[in-house]
């Protein structure tokens, strides 16, 4: 097995004079990818909670998903978030050519669609709460709100990030640091779409909303 030891010859490399520089952008994006995986586990915890609470006893006299959510409105939200992710992704193609305008334009369009998505979701929750199904009313409702609001908060944080990237790109252009950050932002935004499709299928469609 591994126990065979290398033999020392005149050619054996002992010091890596050239090996100093690490791939800075890849390290950044890999680290951020790991953060996204841990974030996925946060959603796993919320999904597990939602699955446990998804029963009439936990709803405590309040309706379940089929009486609260609209699948068609959810589908519209899905299109919005996909459009937003598409904009940001296409914008990031500007990194290839150093096209600042494309990057910023993509971010702006994606941000606006993201804001629209949040507005959609929040107004749905407001209607629910106004109808007497607020987050304090039952364990099930608390889980539903927790899941939807956590996703919306991520989107909101992404909006802040987009705003910050405008400042950075304006000040420093598309240098290596900003490229790494934009790649991370793109992954973050794409990740929100992945989470949303799981929420949509599991909470809306599987929950029987129509």
């Amino acid at each position: 097995m591994h126990s065979e030891k290398p033999t020392l010859t005149a050619k054996t490399a002992l010091w890596a004079y050239e090996g100093e520089e690490h791939d800075f952008i890849s390290t950044r994006t890999f680290g951020f990818w790991l953060y996204l995986l841990s974030d996925a586990l946060i959603f796993a915890g919320l999904f597990a909670s939602y699955a446990v609470m998804d029963n009439p006893m936990s709803a405590f006299g309040h309706p379940l998903a089929n009486g609260l959510l609209s699948a068609s409105r959810g589908l519209i939200q899905t299109f919005i978030v996909l459009g937003s992710v598409f904009s940001v992704s296409v914008g990031s193609l500007g990194l290839k050519t150093g096209n600042k305008g494309l990057v910023l334009g993509g971010l702006a369009a994606g941000g606006l669609l993201g804001a629209l998505f949040i507005w959609f979701g929040v107004s749905d929750l407001q209607v629910m709460a106004a109808a007497g199904n607020g987050p304090l009313e039952s364990g099930y409702l608390a889980c539903l709100y927790a899941l939807l609001i956590t996703h919306a908060l991520h989107m909101g944080f992404g909006l802040l990030w987009i705003v910050a990237m405008f400042v950075h790109v304006a000040r420093w252009g598309l240098d290596a640091m900003n490229t790494a950050r934009l790649l991370c932002l793109r992954m973050f935004w794409q990740f929100q779409a992945s989470v949303w499709v799981v929420i949509y299928v599991y909470v809306y469609l599987f929950g029987g909303a129509h």
Partner: peptide
């Protein structure tokens, strides 16, 4: 940075396909 593989990897076709497949699957 423009030559970084993760930058080079993205293409318009990929993103269109991803969006269309996702949207179609959800519909």
């Amino acid at each position: 940075p423009t030559q970084h593989p993760e930058v080079r990897q993205g293409t318009i076709l990929r993103y269109v396909l991803a969006t269309v497949i996702s949207a179609a699957a959800m519909v």
